[in-house]
Every structure is written in structure tokens, then in C-alpha cells.
Design a protein around this nucleic acid. Sequence first.
DNA 1: TTCCTGCTTG
DNA 2: CAAGCAGGAA
Length: 353
Amino acid sequence: MAFSNEIMAWYSRHKRDLPWRRTTNPYIIWLSEVILQQTRVEQGLPYFHRFVSQYPDVVSFASADEDEILLHWQGLGYYSRARNMHRAAKAVVQEYGGAFPTNYEELIKLKGIGEYTAAAIASFSANEARAVVDGNVFRVLSRYFGIDDPINSTKGKKRFLSLAQDLLDHQNPGWYNQSVMEFGALQCRPKNPACATCVLRLDCRAVNEGRVGNLPVKIKGKASRNRYFNYFVVKADDRLLMSKRGKGDIWENLYELPLIETSSQAAPHELAAMDEVKACFGTNAGMKLVSGPVKHVLSHQNLFAQFFEVTPSRAPDIKKMQWNYVFIKDLGTLAKPKLIYSFLKNYMVGYYT
DNA sequence: TTCCTGCTTG
DNA sequence: CAAGCAGGAA
């Protein structure tokens, strides 16, 4: 098969020397694959090294505290990946005695491992014949074969999955899978693909039909909603009031400042007049805007955050609000969303790094 | 099964 | 403004 052989030959000449390609240890490959989900190699690399050194095996990962894992994950985003990894690691210890599975059927049962990641780990660690289909593969196949089914439609996904499985080299599934993905990352790039130097250009339908810029096709998602977050900085001596986020919303189990969400942008005096604010900080609380509104964009939400320095006129009911005073010097031990981390970093200059 | 949602960076 | 997978709700 011209396509598969060409692309594997290309890979042997152009592959990057990435650390997770030097091992067949399924645990290490799992770390790299989950970190690299929705993350670029350059951004994931330092996290990969951190996790390998902090948790050299699945047993150490499983016995760590979730807060600690989240702290190491801080800044990577999609924090459910870290929480699910913890659950998966515990399951591996419980059900497999710490021997990380290498076959697709077992892998896909673990939290945070879907079709792509199961195929990746199985093929890289044990050469199981499972084709991976990630964003790179979608792009390479849609261009080379001129397929304009949307890659995020059910029909499209099935078609690409089945095509990928047909193309798989059964002698070297792991090598083949790496080849297509690397080819997509370096040659058949989303923007500015290097068609002029491409070994597949003569047989590439997108090139021949002038459709490279139009493939792959993707259905646009729905628009984001706007949310308005009002954060309160409440200091007491060398401590700061902090809050842990709960289930069912963004940033689950991460730490932030006390928050009141409003349905629109609130001016400082409007906020101070709110019953909820009075109930928290007293009727005569001082309130001063110190930052914002800062726009913070998530995948399906636009956050507009304001930060207020508050001088309560009576002691906040921290028990009822489930808030905690945290020593400023200890703020670095709490996993925080980028938004909060960045604010504190600027605001607490000299106290906290 | 299908649809919706999660974070950050270049 | 685009890019990148999985889980859970519908």
C-alpha cells in the first residue's frame, strides 16, 4: 500500500526524538498520551517530565493526593484529565496489581482513556493492531483521500475510523500510527502544510483538486456563553480567604477566591448593594476594584472576571460559605485555574510566587 | 446514541 | 480565532 509505506518511510527520516517514544512502558506512554490530549507537544513536555519524576510508576501515582496531582497539573487545563488519571491509576493498582494493561479492551475501561488513547497505548506498548485516529490522522486522511465528511460528525468519524483501520500496517502498528500522526504534525499541518515538499503530493486528492485549504471539514460548534465572575480578596493578617470549587461546573476541585457570579457586568456600587454581598461581608463592607474586568476564554464560555478588595464590616461566616483562610505563604500549594493564578501572581507580588 | 461541555496557548 | 479527546447528560 503506497500510502502506508510512504508515510512510514517518511517517518523514519523525519521523526522527532520525543521521550515517550523511547519506551514501551504502558504507564509512561499513558502519562504522555493523556497529557498530550488537547495539548501541544511543546506545552506538554515539561509536564511530562514533572509527572515522570514525581510519579515514576503507577503505584506512586495512585497513592498521591488528588490535590497534589492537580497542583502538578496546574496550567494545563482540562483538569478532569488529572482527576480521571488518578481514578485510573487506583483502578490499575486495585484490579491489575499495579501492572498497567496493554490491550485495548482493558485500557478503554479506565477513566480518561477513550478510543484514541486506548489504541495509542495498545499499539505503542504492545504492537496491538489498533489504528489511532486523532486530529492529525483526520487531517491527513481527509486530504489525501479527498474526504469531505465532517470529522466531528458521527458519520464522518465512523468513516475515518474504518479507513484508518484498513490502512494500518499489521506488521508494525505502533510505528505506523506514530508515522501518520507525526506526518500530520510536521508535514500535513493544519496551517501552511508543506505540500511542495510532500512525498505524497502526486497521489494526494486535496493537492490535485486544489482543496488542501478546505480539508478537513469541521462542523462549527455553538457559540460560547458569557459569565460574570466577581472575586473577593479578603485578607486577614498574613492569610487570604480561599474557596474550593465543587462538582458540576468548570475547574472542579480547584481553588479560587470567594466568588459571586452575576448575570451581567456589575459595577462596584451595584455589587456592594447586593443582599448576597451584604450577607457575606456585612452591610458596610468596603469594596474596591483592584483588577478587571479580565476576559478569560474557555472552550464554551467567556468569563469576565473582576477582583475586589474587601474590608468586611463583620467577620465572614466562613463555615457556612465553605471558605478557608489560607496562609499567603502557602498559596503555592493549592491548584488554581490560570485566571486565579495570574491574578494572585500580580496582586501578591513579593508575598507569593 | 447523540449532544454538550471542559482549558490554555500560538 | 483555531486546535486538540473524553465523559456524562440528554
